[in-house]
């Protein structure tokens, strides 16, 4: 088991509605082009799905990295609305059923890009960032030179919004990670215990919080794991 420091080699992010920056790594398009995909594959993806596929194509053009994709709710709109259709005796749409699974987006990306590496889908009840970094350490410790960790989410359907403490518009972020022991030019990324004052105000991190952290605008804290992450320059 290694204790080597994670490094951030590169990143991409998508957050429609955010003020555009002069930074090609951040997209604020309402509907991502998903030009990395043929139209016949692109048509079934929602906004986050299209953004994730574009970000993966940019960060892993050779399609040979291990991919981790975390999402707290996944495509909740499709999944939960299908349950309503079932209770009303309506037949299920096969295409929507196929795309409602948690690994649907990386699956579509895999078909389009030819990536046959390990593709892992994660949901961690608000601790997605922590889970992504833990899983990344595991793969890197086993000898992967780098990998891509993706985090995307979309709001839950309106009739479930009441159960959400912090509903956020859709956004997505992808990080290419390595280890400080490998000869890479990444920025060291370290985890630390978060102090009580920070934990009091923190909410489970959303992809938009990771984007703010990458841009140096806010700290990144996971209250349920009582951790925070520092990105050195």
């Amino acid at each position: 088991m290694t204790t080597a420091t994670l490094t951030l080699e590169d990143w991409r992010a998508w957050q429609p509605g955010r003020t555009p920056l002069d930074d090609r790594r951040l997209s604020v398009e309402e509907r991502p082009g998903a030009t990395s995909l043929p139209a016949m594959l692109r048509r079934r993806l929602n906004g986050p799905g299209r953004a994730v596929c574009d970000m993966l194509a940019a960060l892993d053009p050779g399609a040979d990295c291990v991919l981790l994709h975390a999402s707290r709710h996944g495509d909740a709109a499709r999944t939960l609305e299908m349950l309503y259709a079932l209770t009303e005796g309506e037949p299920l749409s096969p295409a929507r059923f196929g795309m409602s699974v948690h690994n649907a987006i990386v699956g579509v990306h895999s078909i389009a890009s030819g990536n046959r590496r390990s593709l892992q889908a994660i949901a961690a009840s608000g601790a997605e960032v922590s889970a992504l970094f833990s899983e990344a350490r595991g793969y890197l410790a086993e000898g992967e030179p780098q990998l891509i960790a993706v985090f995307s989410d979309a709001p839950v359907p309106a009739r479930f919004a009441y159960h959400e403490t912090h509903s956020e518009p859709a956004s997505a972020v992808a990080l290419r990670l390595g280890l400080a022991t490998t000869p890479s030019a990444g920025r060291p990324l370290t985890s630390h215990d978060a102090d009580e004052a920070m934990l009091r105000d923190a909410r489970p991190p959303h992809p938009s919080d990771v984007i703010a952290w990458l841009l140096g605008e806010a700290p990144l804290i996971c209250p349920t794991r009582r951790l925070m992450w520092i990105l050195d320059s």
């Binding site: 139209a39 016949m40 692109r42 048509r43 079934r44 096969p94 295409a95 196929g98």
Partner: peptide, 29 residues
Amino acid sequence: TLELEDVTPDDIDRDEPLFVEGLGLDSID
């Protein structure tokens, strides 16, 4: 039904295969 975002009716030929070749639909379609 199949959310063919870039296809118009003129693109569908009555004699061309709908699946795999031609229009290129798949088993979920």
